Amino acid sequence: MHALETKDLKLSYGDSLIIDELNLHIPKGEITVFIGGNGCGKSTLLRSMARLLKPQQGSVLLEGHSISRLATKEVAKKLAILPQGPIAPEGLTVLQLVKQGRYPYQSWLKQWTEEDERVVNNALQSTRMEELADKPVDSLSGGQRQRAWIAMTLAQQTEIILLDEPTTYLDMTHQIEILDLLFELNEKEKRTIIMVLHDLNLACRYAHHIVAIKDKKIFAEGKPEHVINCDLVKNVFDMNCEVTIDPLFGTPLCIPHGKGRCILNRVGV
């Protein structure tokens, strides 16, 4: 069974059609990355798969069931989403934020339990945020804030985690830190990770499955080594490039054409 599916999905904002009759299957227990040019509908598709955007037509299936017919708390126990640039209320601590991940499991009959405490502590440990638990979220660095929000999604204990550009505005060190964390969650706990990334080379390094979106539809999908090539980059991003092999990981490595200081073949170099 697939983790998530879309059937004849059509998405729009007002009169603008964003996604048109899209059929997609997300592999369970793998990392899937959406790629494509700005405005192609990657984030819109992610939001619809988390039931944050109602389809104009078609449906999203969560483990074979129409997500629109499931109770909100039932969805929240199976699927967590981290939107782009989330903002915590002023003064909210990391611990308070992470505890909000347990909301789907609370009711007037079932209050905070030792199990909730254990799950929250594990989420803090997994994201290496224990020492920052009492710090206000808005006082943290960009990478620390992302780890705090990921800790909250972990506290939901969902098998599926969706992330919209989780490395945006982060420096190179923190980008790798966040992606390594997500990779470890997939490797150790078999979480299904679905995310939007702009960096094609990082997408190739971390993804088991890549979905390239263009003209409201899927242009190509599959393993990065099977689908990423010069023709795809030209068609999807309108950019000329060379695609070679990453010397560390063996994954596709995109080298864009363009202007810059070239030191090749210079006398004395």
Rank of each mutant, 00 (worst) to 15 (best):
W112C: 05
E114R: 09
D116N: 07
R118W: 08
R118F: 11
V120E: 15
A123Q: 06
L124P: 07
Q125H: 13
T127H: 12
R128D: 15
E131K: 13
E131R: 07
L132M: 10
L132F: 11
K135Q: 11
P136H: 04
S139N: 15
S139W: 09
L140E: 07
L140M: 08
G143R: 04
G143Q: 06
G143F: 05
A148M: 07
A148Y: 07
M152C: 05
A155I: 09
Q156M: 08
Q156G: 08
Q157L: 05
Q157P: 08
T158V: 08
E159C: 14
I160Q: 06
I161L: 14
E165G: 02
P166D: 07
Y169F: 08
L170G: 00
D171Y: 05
T173Y: 12
T173H: 13
E177I: 04
E177D: 11
E177L: 12
I178Q: 06
L179A: 02
D180T: 12
D180R: 12
L182I: 01
L182Q: 01
F183G: 15
F183I: 11
E189F: 01
K190Y: 11
K190M: 11
R191T: 05
R191W: 00
R191D: 00
R191K: 07
I193C: 01
I194V: 14
V196Y: 01
L197K: 08
L197F: 04
L200S: 12
L200V: 12
N201E: 04
L202A: 03
C204M: 00
R205E: 15
R205G: 12
R205C: 12
R205V: 08
R205D: 15
